[in-house]
């Protein structure tokens, strides 16, 4: 299974690179850093049905860092929600594949783009699916084997500057929303500088834990670790996976480079990137 998700991650990295290069769009580094998280989620974890995207019992994934749209569309297409051939229309005139995540694309739950919106909505979904008809103290705890629809929200590290997230983090902990899992794509670089320099988030584990969450810190590019974290029990509490990642992961010249939040690769750079990933041109 892990071999499959590793292959999927490389495939969607390739798609995202081609899409962003064609559109001369930005945010390629942000896409590449969460490729492995998306590949494991869609490749082996989420209960979703591409033939019935609105299946009421499905798991929900919200990508709150809406600028990571290209790689989300890529994984949805690979998963069969719409044709892979459509991906190359990304950000082109008249395409539904807008530069920030759009819910008019099959499989997308929530349009995002302005940061700090996904986690509150995820709390609402978790509340809808998980609220017992009883006082809070009597909440029936659930494990990962439960058939209750689960809610997953991917947030960026820079996005945690937004106060709305901390409202939601407080809320989810208080209400013990244990069908909710947040994943932080902690690539350490935000829009105009390093996270440490702009608004340091550390100690981030302590912050989430103090707000009542189960916290698991992992290497966000290690598929076995991602699997294990997703399966870890968090009965009675929401769970956050602090996924330590590398911005631009998988393309050597983009890794840890702020510039690739903005730049798009030219033909030569694209060829080099695809070759490095073992993807076809």
């Amino acid at each position: 299974m892990t071999t499959d998700t590793i292959k999927l991650a490389q495939t969607i990295r390739g798609h995202a690179l081609r899409m962003i290069a064609k559109a001369k769009a930005s945010h390629v580094g942000s896409c590449l850093s969460m490729a492995d998280l998306l590949a494991v989620l869609y490749g082996s974890h989420l209960r979703v049905d591409p033939n019935n995207p609105r299946w009421p019992e499905r798991d929900r994934l919200i990508v709150s860092k809406g600028h990571g749209a290209a790689i989300l569309y890529a994984v949805l297409a690979e998963r069969g929600f719409f044709p892979v051939a459509d991906l190359i229309t990304y950000s082109q005139d008249g395409s539904p594949l807008t530069g920030h995540v759009s819910h008019h694309v099959p499989g997308v739950e929530l349009s995002t783009g302005s940061l700090g919106h996904g986690l509150p909505v995820g709390c609402g979904l978790a509340l809808a699916h998980g609220r017992p008809h009883a006082p809070r103290e009597e909440i029936v705890t659930r494990s990962v084997t439960s058939t209750v629809p689960r809610t997953f929200v991917i947030v960026s590290d820079g996005e945690l500057d937004e106060g709305s997230n901390w409202e939601a983090i407080l809320f989810a902990g208080h209400h013990k929303l244990d069908s909710l899992t947040a994943l932080v794509d902690y690539n350490k670089i935000q829009s105009f500088g390093s996270v440490k320099d702009v608004l340091d988030l550390e100690p981030l584990t302590d912050k989430w834990r103090d707000f009542g969450w189960t916290v698991i810190a992992i290497d966000g590019h290690d598929h076995d670790a991602i699997q294990a974290a997703l399966h870890a029990d968090h009965a009675g509490k929401p769970k956050v996976i602090l996924a330590h990642t590398i911005k631009g992961k998988g393309v050597a010249y983009m890794e840890d480079q702020l510039a690739w939040h903005y730049k798009s690769p030219d033909a030569k750079q694209l060829a080099e990137a695809l070759a490095g990933l073992g993807c076809g041109q």
Binding site: L110, P120, A128, A168
Partner: peptide
């Protein structure tokens, strides 16, 4: 946001 999630 919670209201939106519930309404979804």
């Amino acid at each position: 946001g919670v209201a939106a999630g519930l309404a979804m």
